[in-house]
């Protein structure tokens, strides 16, 4: 069992009303799964992903990640935990404009305190694997959307995470680029990386081994 959510609630108070972003989420995800999260806009997909990625707090419930009770961890320990095991891919890529492709991919390693020589080797491997060696000195703005997302994924994978969280990774791409990315995800999953992706597209969702439907903050039971 990689992670386990039990009775997760998250809300915001608007005046006297309480708006629930997440309502009683119960979710178990095993290592090696490829889960797609679907649902209409505002159903809480991204919020759920952020909670799983420990970027966002929740108000009630328990969350165990690899046996650790996340709600009991201090900020520092939480950071250490996700730094170690989780990689993020965003819809808008979120590359740092001021850094080159190479430097963008290298950044997580800097924060992990990995030595320069090792960093160089790891980044070189990654550039090789994604066939973007020739682009390593370019800045993000000089790349197409698909290429930027490739860099984003490369960056997410450089730390060798157990879990890859992707928030609409193909949302800003055309269908061909999107397909390539999904194929890549499938391949990564086969290599053993657990993936949770948020998507609007049924077709992309089919790449996953399991689909979770969210509506108004809670899980709709349908599908498998």
């Amino acid at each position: 069992m990689l992670l386990q959510l039990r009775g997760i609630y998250k809300w915001v108070n608007t005046g006297i009303n309480r708006t629930f972003l997440l309502k009683d989420i119960n979710l178990d995800i095993d290592e090696g799964e490829f889960v797609s999260v679907m649902g209409p806009s505002g159903s809480g997909k991204s919020t759920l992903l952020n909670v799983i990625g420990m970027l966002d707090d929740f108000d009630e419930g328990t969350y165990h990640f690899m046996g650790e009770a996340v709600q009991q961890l201090k900020e520092k320990q939480r950071t250490a935990l996700y730094k170690q095991y989780i990689g993020f891919v965003f819809q808008a890529y979120h590359l740092i404009d001021e850094l080159t492709v190479y430097e963008n991919i290298e950044t997580p390693l800097l924060y992990k305190g990995i030595k320069a020589s090792e960093r160089k080797a790891l980044v070189a491997d990654m550039l090789d694997r994604f066939q973007i060696v020739g682009k390593k000195d370019l800045f993000p703005t000089q790349l197409s959307g698909g290429q930027q997302q490739l860099v984003g994924i490369a960056r997410a994978l450089i730390g060798n995470p157990k879990l890859l969280l992707a928030d609409e990774p193909t949302g800003n791409l055309n269908s061909k680029q999107g397909e390539e990315i999904m194929e890549l995800f499938k391949q990564l999953n086969q290599e053993g990386v657990t993936i949770i992706q948020v998507t609007h597209s049924e077709k992309n969702a089919e790449y996953g081994s399991r689909i979770i439907h969210l509506l108004d903050g809670h899980v709709e039971r349908k599908g498998q």
């Binding site: 990625g53 970027l55 950071t79 996700y82 730094k83 993020f88 979120h94 590359l95 740092i96 404009d97 001021e98 950044t107 997580p108 924060y111 992990k112 960056r155």
Partner: peptide
């Protein structure tokens, strides 16, 4: 944005 990314990256 940059700060956000950096923080997400650890």
């Amino acid at each position: 944005k940059e700060i956000g990314i950096r923080k997400v990256l650890g």
